[in-house]
């Protein structure tokens, strides 16, 4: 099986660990993720003003690339890309007036009417692969690890593009359980990490991130599992700063769901780029005694 795939800018550099682990895991399941040709940045956030259409052009251009490729569905990984592409798609499908204006503006492109369906990889696994298939494909079960799925904002909000309804965290739970681990729900699983405010109002973002990490620890999680590079930055890479400021008490490993997915399917740890995670991730995997060769990631 082959599916059209939109990686997003961050996944091509700073979040290679999200991109490459996903592509490898899907290949292990016999699914080829075919990257769109000539894609551009999706815009990351959806424009919320009724009279602002220019900011929908970026995601629509990507959807046009998918249509040109003959794709029926477009798989995304980054939560922000998923959200901005899915919401732009709804406008092009449902709002005739806006659709006409946007198509007219993009006079160098073919017209688009929302023909492509935007799907997050978790939804793709749920609807097209099935959790039992994944359970059977697992080579190294991640037993003994207590994982907390963290959805953040953009997988579930607003409702019209929710991968699953707000307050429900079943897809990631089913995946992680299929991989053999124990899953714990924690009450901050859909609390915003502060998002892009890390650049404008870091204090505000940091206090939000600290609450998420503390709540996960209180719930007994060994690690947090997520699908957004900005969440990973605020909750993972910025942990050293949070510790220093005394906002959190201990380090919490933060993984992309695709990294654990790939590892459990027997994909080489090199393709999971654990060197891009915080060191606590490798420590946790070692401590649990899984037979992964993590020397290379540790050396980097």
């Amino acid at each position: 099986m082959k599916v059209s795939y939109y990686p997003g800018c961050t996944l091509k550099s700073k979040a290679k660990n999200l991109d490459e682990s996903a592509v490898a895991a899907m290949a292990a399941l016999g699914v080829e993720m075919e990257e769109l040709p000539r894609w551009n940045c999706c815009g990351a956030v959806h424009s919320l003003a009724d009279d602002d259409l220019i900011h929908h052009v970026a995601p629509v251009r990507d959807l046009i690339r998918a249509k040109e490729q003959g794709a029926e569905i477009l798989v995304t990984l980054c939560s922000m890309c998923y959200n901005s592409l899915a919401r732009a798609n709804l406008i092009m499908r449902d709002d005739e007036e806006k659709r006409r204006t946007i198509n007219l503006f993009m006079d160098e492109e073919i017209d688009y009417q929302g023909e492509v369906e935007v799907v997050h990889l978790l939804g793709f696994l749920d609807q097209r692969i099935g959790w039992s298939t994944i359970r059977e494909a697992v080579k190294v079960p991640l037993r003994g690890m207590v994982l907390a799925p963290y959805y953040g904002c953009t997988l579930q909000r607003p409702r019209d593009v929710a991968m699953e309804p707000p307050g429900s965290f079943q897809m990631m739970r089913r995946l992680l359980e299929a991989l053999g681990s124990e899953v714990v729900h924690f009450p901050a699983a859909d609390l915003c990490c502060g998002s892009y405010q890390i650049l404008a109002h870091p204090e505000a973002a940091e206090s939000s991130s600290a609450v998420i990490l503390q709540t996960a620890v209180q719930a007994g999680a060994d690690a947090l599992v997520l699908s957004c590079p900005l969440c990973d930055f605020n909750l993972g890479k910025r942990q050293a700063s949070l510790l220093e400021q005394g906002r959190i008490e201990k380090e919490v490993p933060v993984f992309y769901f695709t990294q654990l997915f790939a590892l459990a399917l027997g994909v080489s740890p090199d393709l999971c780029h654990l060197e891009l995670n915080t060191p606590s991730c490798i420590s946790l995997l070692k401590q649990k005694g899984y037979p992964f060769d993590l020397d290379e990631a540790e050396r980097v």
């Binding site: 800018c9 551009n40 940045c41 815009g43 220019i54 970026a58 251009r61 503006f105 993009m106 160098e108």
Partner: peptide
């Protein structure tokens, strides 16, 4: 914002939006 006005304006036929996108992708 990927409006593509840059590429349309280029007298040399350079795919400006594409190289800007490439840089955003690193």
């Amino acid at each position: 914002v990927a409006c593509n006005n840059c590429t349309k304006a280029c007298p040399m036929g350079v795919e400006v939006l594409d190289y800007i996108s490439a840089l955003k992708q690193g």
